[in-house]
Design a protein around this nucleic acid. Structure first.
Lengths: 212, 212
DNA sequence: CCCTAAACCATATCAGTGCTATGTAATGTG
DNA sequence: CACATTACATAGCACTGATATGGTTTAGGG
């Protein structure tokens, strides 16, 4: 009946937007389409406006986060896996600080909440596995403990990747997660070893990008 | 030598900006001065531009936070006081969610970092007091533990006040802080009681503003 | 095969944004 | 009192996101 939208244009634009975010160029309607050959109107047919671009960018952020979490292999030690997920979460925020910011910037709409819930479920599942392995007490609520892990991960990621804390502060993740998992019933020494093992997923301090 | 600035204009404008933030009106150069009788140029003589307005707004946020933390009385139980500070921190974010957002929104400049450091020092001091009272092990680094408390407080405040988590999630603060302080050497039962006592500073769930 | 209806999209234009240049009025100091 | 210096009002700048309009392209039914 009519022409069909070319989905490649959509991915082209959000990819370009992501790169502009990384290079800290201001993303405006005109600067976004400049050089791509597409017209400003395309932004409206594909995204309904700049708001739609930002929303798509937020979804891209959650997609990238999910992909990063997916790289965390499942091992025989669920507590290690939990720490590894936390490390992967923080690492994703460190690698895409601006994208991470827009993810939690605007007021959450349902779409974003769903994406966030999905990553949370990933944590819940591993907590359940740890419970099954007898590492946590029977009375721990998996959703609750997963949420608490998320709070730690987000606090850390937010204050370091887009906030005032220097990068070496990230090692606090070990102490925080160890304290949390120990309070959930895990043996302190064993817990610390598991968390330290899982936290190795984090990149070395390397060239520090935080402030002194 | 010349006309002198009226400092009242400055406070008038940032107060108005704060209110516009609360009512979620977009803060633009013209809408900010509309109705105040002052001209758009006043924004430039007093703030140097809209960036200056946002910077002043951020400082206002830290000022308000410091004022809130100052209302936390010092008791004989430093662990309680620590939890009370955490609760006050979260409560401030809940009462001024948009202000809290702008505080950590833009890239941190030195001024903001100083303001943030000041609130952190408040925590460090109480941790030292707890160490002196024998509640924490001698080998805990006060700055480290204070930072970890901040990470928890910020994660909680950020995810609840300006994020996807519902308000009742705030009770997780008790478990998180108890886990942390216990791992620092405090007696588990005593710690829980202290934290629960201090956390009472938080307002009751009341009319929930989070999502279900 | 073609021809019509629908969708895509280029152009021009709009109101609104932050900001600045220019001229004027006010004021504290010498 | 005179004047240098500052505050400020006006008008205008380049830019923003958004839309109205109509031309162009494409898909699918006759």
């Amino acid at each position: 009946m009519a022409r069909t939208k070319d989905p490649a244009v959509r991915t082209l634009l959000i990819e370009r937007a992501g790169q502009m975010l990384r290079t800290r160029e201001p993303i405006t309607l005109r600067s976004l389409v400049a050089g791509t050959g597409v017209s400003t109107m395309a932004v409206y047919t594909y995204f309904g406006g700049m708001d739609g671009v930002w929303k798509a960018l937020r979804q891209e952020g959650f997609t990238r986060l999910a992909a990063r979490l997916a790289t965390v292999a499942t091992s025989a030690d669920p507590v290690r896996d939990l720490a590894a997920l936390g490390a992967a979460y923080v690492r994703n925020a460190l690698d895409n600080p601006d994208l991470y910011r827009v993810m939690f910037d605007a007021t959450f709409d349902l779409e974003d909440s769903d994406a966030a819930d999905e990553t949370l479920q990933r944590l819940v599942h591993v907590v359940e596995r740890a419970k099954g392995a007898g590492r946590f007490r029977a009375d721990v609520d998996p959703l609750e403990l997963a949420t608490q892990s998320w709070i730690i991960g987000h606090g850390l990621a937010s204050l370091v990747a887009t906030g005032p804390l220097p990068r070496q502060t990230l090692t606090n993740g070990i102490a925080l997660l160890t304290a949390l998992f120990t309070s959930a019933g895990d043996d302190p020494d064993r817990c610390r070893r598991s968390v330290e093992h899982g936290w190795k997923e984090l990149p070395p301090p390397g060239l520090s990008r935080g402030r002194a």
